[in-house]
Every structure is written in C-alpha cells, then in structure tokens.
C-alpha cells in the first residue's frame, strides 16, 4: 500500500507527496495539527486523512493485506457454519423433510395460505418448538410474536406447549437423567413466559416495532425466531399510495433480512392470499404484490388437497419444490393422520 493509492482526494494526495510524506510510516507518528500545518489544510481534513491511514494499516495487519473485502466470508466457511446450525422443527416430520430439517435460522421464510388452513397454528407451534431445550435436541431459544390481527390465542399456545412437552418427553423417555435436569424448563408456563408478544394495531406501529427489534434483540440474545402474524393485515387497508407501500414494505423486508443475519435467528412471515387475474383466469396468489414476493428467502404455501392440508415449497435457493401433508391436531401441528404419508417430490 502506498500513499499514491490512498482513498483520499487527489489534491490531498498531491499535498502529502509534495510535503514529503511518501510512506505510511512517515504518517504514523505525525499529529493531526502538525499535518494540517505542513499541508496547509484544515485540522478536520488532516485528522480525516490520518483516520483513513490508520484504518488501512489496521485492516492490513489483520488480514495480511490480502483479504478481498472486509466482512466477506468464503462459501466454504459459510457451509461449515450452516452445517452446525440447528433447525426449528415444525412438529410434522414430513414438513420438516421437505424443509430440509425445519425452519432455518438466518433466513426469512414466508408462509401463505387461505384462511383457516393453519398459518397461525404453525406460527404458535414454531414459537413453542423453538424453546425445546438443547438437551432434547432443540434450540433452547425464545420467540418474538408480532400479532397484527389479534389471532394469537394464549389458551391455544398453552395447549400446544403441553402437547410439545408430552411428545418430547415421550421421545426421550429412556433418558431419565436429562428429564431431571430440565424439569423446570419443561413446564407449559415457562414456555409461555418465553414468548414475547407484541400486539400491533396499525402499519405505523408495525414499522416502529420492527425498527425497535434491533434494540430489543441486542438485549434478548436468546431470541431465535420472530413470527409476524400476519405481515399483510394493516398494509391491505388504508393505504392509498401503492408506490409508497412498496417502498415501505421493501425497506421492512431488508430490515428483517439484516436482523436474521446479525442475530442468527429465523423470521417467519405469515401472509394472506389474494386473487390475481392472469392469462384469462383468476388465480390465488399471496398478497402484497410482485415486489413483495422477493422479500423472503423461502416461501411455503399451505393449501387444501381434498380434505387434507398440504404444504408446498414455492421458492427456495436450496430446497427443491416439494409438497407434504400435515394436520392440525389438538396438540398442534403433527403428521397427517391418513394412510398416505409418503412425501411427494416434484
């Protein structure tokens, strides 16, 4: 690294060179006021130059001078990291299979479907399942539940937590020691205590809470999932300026993406459906339009297939398109009860 290609203005560069500062070491000992005098520039400018120089020398010594970019990671490192990650189980094995083990951290997953298909049920289930202690193969995290529609039922959450505890204990029935260790955690009340619930009554509040999350998550490091039920509700009414809506929504999705990466957590957005007129017929698609459809990493569509609930992977960078049946029982989301349990790959 030489003075000649320092990222400062050309006139400053020329002044540095003509004043005799030709190497980095010559700049290392100089004070801003002295530099300002020598170069005949303002003190602020001189300290800016010195800051640039010290930043570069520091990053050079850190990375041996050959790192391509500060903050960049190689795919190899990311792969190793990804393999260490645990997934948040949905409670339904078939659904977990097509999701590659469950809901991924560091990704935004959008779940959409017609009313009554079980979006909120899945949301509650995930808020509970994320808390399965590490000893039982879970993440032992906490959940943030952002409720815009008022559909979160705490009685139901209690039921689901009970069901989850029962099934987890069944699965680990032979490990007596583990059960004694986390007896306290495995109570429905402690599951409920670890769901942070925000009730949102307008889109302004929704934007505000997403901006606030940054601060909230810095304090609550254990949060592993954020569920927004639903992201659509307030944006579908009293919004006249559609262009503004697109901008606000895109800004919001970038914020969420950033949160997932920074705090290593999963974001699940529940979305409603709408009809769209394409190629001469009305078809069901997810609400909020075409720009929004890029706002998620993965998209799962829930739909009715006869009398059976199915989930379909509509978009994902790493998962293939596939569908799987699931059912909503009194304990929560579970495997489909009918005979046909086979996962259909497409």
């Amino acid at each position: 690294m030489e003075i000649a290609n320092l990222p400062i203005s050309p006139s400053h560069r020329a002044k540095l060179l003509s004043a005799g500062y030709t190497t980095f070491s010559s700049l290392s000992a100089v004070s801003p006021s002295q530099l300002a005098r020598d170069l005949n520039i303002a003190l602020q400018e001189a300290s800016d130059i010195l800051k640039v120089v010290s930043d570069i020398t520091r990053s050079e010594s850190l990375h041996g001078g050959n790192a391509i970019l500060k903050g960049a990671q190689t795919a190899w490192d990311m792969l190793s990291e990804e393999q260490m990650q645990k997934r948040i189980t949905t409670g339904c094995d078939d659904l977990d299979t097509i999701l590659g083990g469950g809901i991924h951290c560091k990704e935004v997953t959008e779940v959409g479907g017609v009313p009554g298909i079980g979006k909120t049920q899945l949301g509650i289930q995930l808020a509970v399942n994320v808390q399965i202690p590490v000893e039982y193969g879970g993440l032992g995290g906490k959940a943030v539940y952002i409720d815009t529609e008022g559909s979160f039922m705490v009685e139901r959450a209690y039921q689901v937590a009970e069901g989850c505890i029962m099934d987890t204990l069944d699965k680990f029935g032979h490990h007596r020691k583990v059960i004694l260790d986390c007896q306290e955690q495995m109570q429905p009340n402690s599951f409920l205590a670890n769901i942070f619930y925000f009730r949102i009554c307008s889109y302004t509040e929704q934007i505000a809470v997403i901006n606030y999350l940054q601060k909230f998550l810095a304090e609550q490091k254990d949060v592993k999932i954020i569920i927004i039920d639903s992201v659509t509700f307030h944006f579908r009414q009293d919004f006249d300026d559609l262009a503004l809506r697109t901008r606000v929504l895109c800004g919001m999705s970038l914020k969420l993406m950033e949160l997932t990466k920074t705090y290593n957590l999963a974001v699940v957005l529940l979305n409603q459906v709408t009809t769209k007129f394409t190629e001469g017929s009305f078809q069901l698609t997810l609400a909020l339009g075409d720009s929004w459809s890029h706002a998620c990493t993965n998209r799962v569509i829930l739909y009715w297939n006869g009398n059976e609930r199915h989930a379909y992977i509509d978009k994902s960078p790493s998962l293939r398109s596939a569908s799987a049946p699931f059912s909503v029982t009194s304990k929560g989301i579970r495997n489909a009860t009918s005979q046909c349990k086979r996962v259909r790959m497409m």
């Binding site: 391509i68 970019l69 903050g71 960049a72 990671q73 190689t74 795919a75 190899w76 990311m78 792969l79 970038l254 914020k255 993406m257 950033e258 990466k261």
Partner: peptide, 11 residues
C-alpha cells in the same frame, strides 16, 4: 472451489 467464492451480505 468454495474457498474461491466470497459472499458479503448487504442490506
């Protein structure tokens, strides 16, 4: 191959 691909997240 994977060490020759660098990824940077930008929001």
């Amino acid at each position: 191959v994977m060490s020759n691909i660098f990824c940077h997240s930008v929001f």
